[in-house]
């Protein structure tokens, strides 16, 4: 039995901006359990005294100098664009303003 509801999957699909069909929503609701099980598994050993490793090898302070490099030619930048106009990427109507 799935512990994650179909509604929760729909919310996540919205967050992830993926339109899912009804069958996809239902199937994924069951498959999210793998996350729940994995969490239960790692919680067995991931105790508070264990530090987290975010990077496999411990590098720090990797910088580039503040030097300008060649920019992409604008035609290259726009070459893959589904739609462009006047040197800009044309995108559909934006409803939210952040």
């Amino acid at each position: 039995m799935s512990t994650i509801s179909r509604e929760e999957v729909a919310r996540l699909a919205g967050l992830a901006r993926i339109d899912l069909t009804e069958p996809e929503l239902n199937r994924l609701a069951g498959e999210l359990d793998v996350i729940v099980e994995s969490v239960a598994r790692v919680s067995e050993v991931a105790t508070s005294d264990v530090p987290a490793t975010s990077h496999p090898l411990p590098l720090t302070n990797v910088f580039r100098e503040d030097v300008v490099e060649a920019a992409l030619p604008v035609e290259d930048a726009l070459a893959g664009a589904p739609s462009a106009e006047g040197g800009r990427f044309a995108v559909p109507q934006i409803l939210e303003e952040d």
Binding site: A70, A71, V74, A77, G86, G87
Partner: peptide, 17 residues
Amino acid sequence: DGAPTEFGAEPNTQVTP
């Protein structure tokens, strides 16, 4: 990245991958 930051440049001329 090394893209330039000049103000008022033509659109999308100050970009890298």
